[in-house]
């Protein structure tokens, strides 16, 4: 009597299954095509990363970090970390992982920024998207693997799809926040001079929201990297696969090495995207100094 009654249940699981069956039966061809194109893109990016000699990439990352932060020690640190990934023997795996991260982040940004703009422009859109984004972020990441697996089979394409779903919320949210936080008087002034919706977007809202959007891209990238490791469970090669194999074979040392390689890759990616997010504050300071000289 006190047990939960059978009649007060809804068979959501069956419905979801039914929807997935329907999609597979009717749209299977579309997903096959998307899968093929996706695979070509992923392979092309991986080949490009592997085509570049390892030392060129190490030096390039070091130089980029140096330029962005302005301290050569920082650049050297980044180069050494990337080098260590190779020292552990995971260069190729790291590039595979990186290719999935790059492609999924590129798609996430391509979809996420416009979605964030729509969300900032329209309160109804925000009301609809907010709970969806909440769900996407609280859902255990493994759950995304199942539909990805069904739609695209095994391999790096479903891993990229799952990564995309998992990693896209921050860039959407922070684009929305960034645009909504643009000061009202700046918007008003631009309007007073005859700015239309697109002038406002490109001249005022996006430039002023840029720091926030860049933080969103940074977070999306980090989440993508975390998910790529989980994606190894559906056959995504790369660093995650090495960790997974090490766990299965109880090779603690090997797992530690692969794990460290992931950490180093994460730190390099985080610091560099973070430096992009902060931008170069030098310009204002320079002008400020000149001002005191002149005035």
């Amino acid at each position: 009597m006190l047990e939960y009654p059978e009649w007060l249940r809804i068979p959501l699981a069956e419905w979801v299954d039914a929807v997935m069956d329907w999609i597979l039966a009717n749209l299977g061809g579309v997903f096959d095509w998307i899968g093929d194109v996706g695979l070509q893109v992923l392979l092309a990016v991986e080949h490009a990363l592997l085509f570049v000699p390892w030392f060129v990439l190490v030096i390039a990352v070091g130089a980029l970090a140096w330029r962005l932060i302005g301290k050569w020690t920082f650049g050297l640190g980044m180069a050494v970390m990337l080098l260590l990934v190779g020292v552990f023997g995971y260069w190729v795996e790291a590039m595979t992982t990186l290719s999935v991260v790059i492609v999924s982040v590129a798609i996430a940004v391509g979809i996420g920024i416009p979605a964030g703009i729509l969300m900032a422009w329209s309160n109804p859109v925000k009301r609809v998207l907010t709970p969806i984004l909440d769900a996407m972020q609280t859902m255990p990441s493994f759950v995304y693997l199942i539909p990805a697996l069904m739609l695209f089979g095994l391999g790096r394409v479903p891993a990229t799809f799952a990564t995309l779903i998992y990693a896209i919320p921050p860039v959407i949210r922070l684009t929305d926040v960034g645009i909504r936080e643009v000061p009202g008087d700046t918007i008003e002034a631009a309007k007073a001079f005859g700015a239309n919706r697109w002038n406002l977007l490109f001249d005022v809202q996006l430039p002023l929201a840029r720091p926030s959007i860049m933080v969103g891209i940074n977070q999306t990238t980090m989440m993508a990297l975390a998910m790529v490791v989980i994606g190894s469970m559906i056959g995504n090669r790369g660093l995650g696969m090495e960790v997974l194999l090490a766990i299965n074979r109880v090779q603690i040392g090997k797992g530690f090495e692969a794990g460290l390689a992931i950490v180093f890759l994460a730190i390099v990616i985080d610091r560099i995207t973070n430096a992009f997010a902060k931008g170069r504050p030098a310009k204002v300071t320079d002008a400020g100094e000149k001002t005191t000289l002149k005035g």
């Binding site: 008087d185 700046t186 008003e188 002034a189 631009a190 007073a192 001079f193 001249d203 005022v204 430039p207």
Partner: peptide, 10 residues
């Protein structure tokens, strides 16, 4: 044209 108290510069 309009001039604003808080300047409204970009």
């Amino acid at each position: 044209s309009m001039v604003f108290q808080n300047y409204g510069l970009l």
